Simulated assay, not measured.
Amino acid sequence: MAKKEQVRARDRDRVEVGALLDAALADGQLTADEHATRTRSAMRAKFTTDLDRLVRDLQVPGELAGAAILGGDRRSRPWWIPVAVLAAAAVLGGGVGFVARNDPAPGIAAAVEAESETEALPNLLTADGLTYFIDTYRQEFGDTVIDTATVYPDFLLVQRLVGGSARNFHFTAEGFDEVGVEVPSNADGRPIDLADIDLTTLAAVLAGAPASVRLEQGAVEHLGIGFEPIAPADAGPVIQIFVEDPAGDTGHLSVSFAGVPLEVFPAR
């Protein structure tokens, strides 16, 4: 009997499987360890059969039961799927753009002009705000490489390695000020290039983040950009998105620089 031809997995296939795994964690079908292991396998999967094996024992939403990534019949029922995950999948399916490494990103001139007119910093928890920061960082240091960063709406803490030594900066509307407070980092010397962030997809993820962590009345409170402490050595940097609602309830999720969801921790 001839061996069945393998079909290469798409980014969108990996995102859909990630959504299923996230929902299975929230639904109690998977433990946190099982979820982390399967999610990392999904992000590295080359073929649809590899992805299918990761969700074969899970219940799936009816609208995805016939997807190419799913093999065989499964019991279908309504299932919560993170809004940010679906938004990212939609953007991935339609094509994405990255921040230019050498030239300012499209539209940055308008952002800079608006900044000079209003003397106010763009909200750094938006794609436009991050675009503004990345371009300003490039102008200040000559590249877009960092060690780690923590992002709030109106200021940012960033660590940069210079000659093997960490230098920490506080970024506000007034620009960069070097500070003595160290930003915790797990990079171990591995460079992080902000130009690798897919800001188009990230904008969709940020918009859906409150619903993704089941805090529909919440808002993104801050971001963490860097390497995770328990991730494999070959894992790339991630963006952690922290959400809080008016009642003080919190949840968070992490995505790759390409906007692919890795883990979702809904509010309990």
Score class of each variant (00 low, 15 high):
2 A>E: 13
2 A>T: 08
3 K>A: 09
4 K>L: 09
8 R>V: 13
13 D>N: 10
13 D>H: 07
14 R>E: 06
14 R>V: 13
15 V>N: 13
16 E>S: 13
18 G>V: 03
19 A>M: 04
19 A>C: 10
19 A>P: 02
20 L>W: 09
22 D>K: 14
24 A>D: 11
26 A>Q: 06
26 A>L: 04
28 G>C: 09
29 Q>R: 14
35 H>Y: 13
36 A>Y: 09
41 S>Y: 06
49 T>K: 05
51 L>H: 03
51 L>K: 01
53 R>F: 03
55 V>F: 10
56 R>D: 13
57 D>T: 12
57 D>G: 14
60 V>N: 10
60 V>L: 15
60 V>E: 05
61 P>L: 07
62 G>P: 03
63 E>H: 01
64 L>N: 07
65 A>G: 10
66 G>E: 15
67 A>L: 05
69 I>G: 01
71 G>H: 01
72 G>L: 12
76 S>H: 00
76 S>Y: 02
80 W>S: 04
83 V>D: 09
84 A>E: 03
87 A>Q: 12
90 A>W: 10
96 V>R: 07
98 F>G: 03
99 V>W: 07
100 A>Q: 14
101 R>H: 08
107 G>W: 00
107 G>T: 05
108 I>P: 00
110 A>Y: 02
112 V>D: 05
114 A>D: 14
114 A>V: 14
115 E>H: 08
116 S>E: 14
117 E>Q: 11
118 T>N: 09
118 T>H: 09
124 L>F: 05
124 L>S: 11
125 L>M: 11
126 T>W: 00
130 L>Y: 00
133 F>R: 00
137 Y>A: 09
140 E>Y: 11
141 F>M: 08
141 F>G: 09
145 V>A: 08
145 V>C: 07
146 I>D: 00
146 I>S: 04
147 D>F: 06
148 T>Y: 05
150 T>D: 02
153 P>N: 15
153 P>I: 11
158 V>A: 04
158 V>F: 00
163 G>D: 12
163 G>A: 04
165 S>A: 15
170 H>L: 14
170 H>R: 13
170 H>P: 02
171 F>T: 02
175 G>R: 05
178 E>A: 08
179 V>G: 11
185 S>K: 15
186 N>S: 08
188 D>C: 14
189 G>N: 09
189 G>T: 15
192 I>D: 07
195 A>F: 02
196 D>P: 01
197 I>H: 06
197 I>T: 02
207 A>S: 14
209 A>I: 03
211 A>H: 15
212 S>T: 15
218 G>R: 01
219 A>M: 08
220 V>T: 11
221 E>V: 03
223 L>E: 04
224 G>I: 04
227 F>S: 14
228 E>S: 13
228 E>A: 13
228 E>T: 09
228 E>G: 09
231 A>H: 12
233 A>G: 15
234 D>C: 12
235 A>W: 06
238 V>C: 00
239 I>K: 01
241 I>L: 06
242 F>V: 13
247 A>H: 02
247 A>M: 04
248 G>E: 10
250 T>W: 03
253 L>R: 01
256 S>C: 11
256 S>T: 15
262 L>V: 13
262 L>H: 01
263 E>P: 00
265 F>C: 04
268 R>W: 02
